[in-house]
Design a binder for these strands. Structure first.
Ligand SMILES: [Mn+2]
Ligand SMILES: [Mn+2]
Ligand SMILES: [Zn+2]
Ligand SMILES: [Zn+2]
Lengths: 136, 136
DNA sequence: CCTTAATTAGAAATGATTTCTATTTATACC
DNA sequence: GGTATAAATAGAAATCATTTCTAATTAAGG
């Protein structure tokens, strides 16, 4: 947890009770959650939680790399805690049964400069599968 | 073009004037277009074009692999003609300047069965870059 | 303790996408 | 070519996740 809070500070994001609660929730659950999921969970802990601030917090924290944006077939927003070493290129896999998110370091694309005549500026890889718990 | 129409038939999608026009437009342009882009273009050719049928056609034709769904940062829907051999695993790259879409066959992930304990069921890779024309 | 800018809640707006229904059309079969 | 059938379509309306706006609150640094 300290690791994440330090990163907030380093990026001039204040340590607010809402942000801490979001990080704790995502750490505890291990799953990718929607803004709505998160607001509902926080509603149990706080008297008031607004959607705009949940949305903004999730967006801000994913922008600085503390959270990862997870793409799902319903095209809604999902966020998970990003647990990998920040300097190691990686992507994420989500379990389609339970939503648990794992880190995937098997990607060499960041080495490639040009593919099919295009100079690559970015790439996004999202995997889906069945985690070891759900696969038993 | 015949290749695409055959694939429609094979999948029990009727050859309608709107579908042919969408395919011709995407083939001519080479870019990923939004449903709105496409409706606007078709509006010049047909007296009436409804959004629901544009949306449904794009979705149906991408479901059978004639079109490719392209992910962009604005999270809206975009579609492009899929030009690769249908039996060859591949992904797509879009030029962030002009929107032109290219086929990318450099992906070995379909060989991997398990990563980080997850049994992989699907993966989505979307690249972005600068095409050879725009890079001059 | 003060100052200041960031954060937040609440209410309202937004707009891309979907749903619904009646009409039209492509296609298979005779 | 004519007919039957299911698919495709237009139009209007609804949906609803996300964003915008504004005034009040709060974290952090001096
Ligand atoms: Mn990560
Ligand atoms: Mn393709
Ligand atoms: Zn990568
Ligand atoms: Zn692949």
């Amino acid at each position: 947890m300290k690791k994440y809070l330090d990163k907030l500070k380093k990026n001039n994001l204040k340590i607010t009770s809402k942000r801490v609660a979001i990080l704790e929730l995502l750490e505890r659950s291990g799953e990718a959650l929607s803004p709505e999921d998160i607001r509902n969970e926080l509603a149990a802990k706080f008297e008031k939680v607004s959607y705009p601030s949940v949305y903004k917090n999730l967006e801000d924290m994913s922008r600085i790399g503390v959270l990862a944006k997870i793409a799902r077939p319903d095209r809604r927003l999902y966020y998970a805690l990003c647990r990998a070493r920040e300097d190691k290129h990686h992507h994420h896999i989500i379990c389609s049964k339970c939503g648990k998110v794992g880190e995937v370091e098997e990607c060499d694309l960041f080495r490639r400069k040009v593919i099919n005549g295009y100079r690559i500026t970015s790439h996004f890889l999202q995997l889906e599968g069945i985690c070891s718990d759900c696969g038993k």
